[in-house]
Amino acid sequence: MYNMLTIAQRTITQLLRDPRTLALILIVPLVISSLIGYSMPSKDLLNSTLPAILAMLVLFFGFLLSGIAFLRERSQGTRERLMASPVSRQDILIGYLLGFLLFTMIQTLILFFFSIWVLKADFTGSLWQIIVFQILIGILAVCLGIFISAFAGNEFQMIQFIPLIIVPQIFVCGLLFPVDQMPIFLQWVSRFLPLTYGVDGLRAMMLQGKSLTNIGKDIGVLGAYAVGLMLLAGISLRRGHGA
């Protein structure tokens, strides 16, 4: 636990000592939310699309932040140094998860509260439960970023994973077109992608006023994805296999 928290604290300190990155982390969600909000032709359209947009943005920002930061750990050689130390794989992965999650959550809260306070979007359902569900999407995003970074040799390759991993999920999650109007095979693809469940869950909570207990399937799938991705990321961090 001590090593895990030490790694989380170091990750947070690193980002806090990088003012430009920190500013971008805070400003980008504001810019994107403003663009989305003010480009919507009607408030009804904003209300109905907001849950899907929020789920998509949380996944996108979390993936990008954690993926690049975790990749840097390898490219600057510090991961090798960590792997030669007494810290375990769990310490590294959960330490990173906690560190990145803080910033992913800050971005999530900016997106959410800007939408409801500034853009005046309406929603039903419990505020704290909606935030808890968004945290779950954030956890998934960080796990996905950490896992995918194992396959990227540099930052450029990591960016290339966005059109491969994130964009297809945006197309088939129901944000642009209803899933049930898509060809059958795409409906099947949609069922295997985590963003679909993030969008489903957030829609159910924000538009239909459902609670966390009503969206057990979405929570279960997102949680299973997060745990599965962390386990796979752990395999890529095995000692004795280089770093």
């Binding site: 300190t13 690193q14 980002l15 000592r17 600057q76 050689g77 510090t78 090798e80 140094r81 130390s85």
Partner: peptide
């Protein structure tokens, strides 16, 4: 104790 060939430090810290 292990000192790798490249400095391997956290550059922001």
């Amino acid at each position: 104790g292990y000192m790798p060939q490249m400095p391997s430090l956290y550059s922001e810290l």
